[in-house]
């Protein structure tokens, strides 16, 4: 319980540094550190599948962000100390917390979830699918529709990136095309 609190505190500190720092490169590096702590938090909460995915996606997004930063010679964001938007934001957050507080108290305790649907999967998952990794069994067998939707989202994202960022037009009719 204490280790997850320490990790969350470090993540909050890292996020504040990422917002407040002037240099874009160090900002990207701090974002990567926050992602690493996120992965550690998943590991502490006993979700190794998520920890692996978070770690590798964080590395890939860090590489992409670094490429973009280095290519574009991104200028430093202007820093005007403007207190009114900050004040409005803090006030609205406190108001939202005030209204949400009764609901938050009704939630089940940390680490003791209500398991009405998941209980069925945990008890019969291995028997029904034959897969010993229950997470894989759920996302690829019980809930394969969601994975199909996720695959469609990824396909659309790749198509969009290739269409928007491809070379301007095709050179020749006979040339082998390099776009997808």
């Amino acid at each position: 319980m204490t280790d997850i609190n320490v990790i969350l505190m470090l993540m909050i500190v890292g996020s504040i540094i990422a917002v407040e720092t002037r240099d874009m490169l160090s900002c990207v590096v701090v974002v990567g550190v926050v992602g690493l702590f996120q992965s550690l938090a998943f590991l502490v909460l006993k979700a190794p599948d998520l920890a692996i995915v978070q770690l590798v996606v964080e590395i890939l997004s860090l590489v992409i962000l670094l490429r973009v930063i280095i290519r574009k010679e991104a200028s430093e964001p202007q820093h005007h100390p403007d207190y009114f938007p900050m004040l409005v934001g803090i006030t609205l957050s406190l108001l939202a917390l005030l209204f949400v507080h009764p609901i938050l108290r009704e939630l089940p305790q940390f680490g003791q979830p209500v398991m009405r649907v998941a209980k069925e999967y945990i008890e019969n998952g291995m028997k029904a699918t034959g897969a010993t990794n229950l997470v894989s069994a759920v996302i690829l067998d019980f809930r394969a529709y969601d994975t199909l939707g996720e695959a469609v989202v990824l396909f659309t994202a790749v198509c969009g990136a290739l269409i928007v960022l491809r070379k301007t037009g095709r050179k020749k009719k006979g040339e082998p095309e390099t776009e997808a």
Binding site: L60, A137, L140
Partner: peptide, 16 residues
Amino acid sequence: HLSPGGGFAGGVIIAL
């Protein structure tokens, strides 16, 4: 299907 991981994580590692 046996240990933590799966298609998404493995695919990202292959891409990496």
